[in-house]
């Protein structure tokens, strides 16, 4: 039976009617059209569906939508503010931290959570934080460089 819930997504509340078994990933994609939440393995192994729940990266395919009530959900669509890209997004563009683009939203969100906690991460720390985000194009080196560059920029300004 459907439940009426309220999800706080990218800083705005959305009243929704969902089945309790609906995965958060599916809810964000289908009900809120946030297709930047990518589904790949749908088993919590690839990280393409990563979103931030209260700032922490989680696999939205392993989370039920009804379980995300009361939490701040951030998807890739919520990263840019007032038409201005997040420094991480700009760094991924400038440093070619992407190829096919499928892992990119999840990569950037994992990196976002890392930089919030640790503005100047070492390379091993970056690699560790990305271990749950697979990139089959193998762009890891430029992804790491993108995060280092963004870390430098945001760190300097913060």
């Amino acid at each position: 039976m459907k439940q009426t819930i309220n999800l706080s997504v990218n800083g705005k509340d959305w009243p929704l009617e969902v089945e309790p078994h609906m995965a958060l990933s599916e809810c964000l994609r289908e009900d809120l059209a946030l297709t930047g939440v990518r589904i790949s393995c749908n088993q919590g192994h690839c990280g393409a569906c990563t979103v931030l729940l209260d700032g922490e990266p989680v696999n939205s395919c392993l989370t039920l939508a009804v379980d995300a009530v009361g939490k701040q959900i951030t998807t890739i669509e919520g990263l840019a503010r007032d038409g201005k890209l997040d420094p991480l997004q700009q760094a991924f563009i400038d440093h070619h931290g992407l190829q096919c683009g499928y892992c990119t939203p999840g990569m950037i969100l994992s990196a976002k959570a890392l930089l919030e906690e640790n503005p100047h991460p070492t390379e091993p720390e970056i690699r560790e934080s990305l271990a749950g985000n697979l990139c089959r194009c193998g762009s890891y080196q430029k992804i790491i460089q993108s995060i280092q560059a963004a870390g430098g920029e945001t760190g300097g300004g913060a």
Partner: peptide, 21 residues
């Protein structure tokens, strides 16, 4: 030239569309 990908902006903002979308 080392220019960025034409579709990089769409890819980093999640606006890029695949067949599953």
């Amino acid at each position: 030239q080392r220019v960025p990908l034409f579709d990089a902006c769409e890819k980093v903002t999640g606006a890029f569309k695949y067949a599953s979308d």
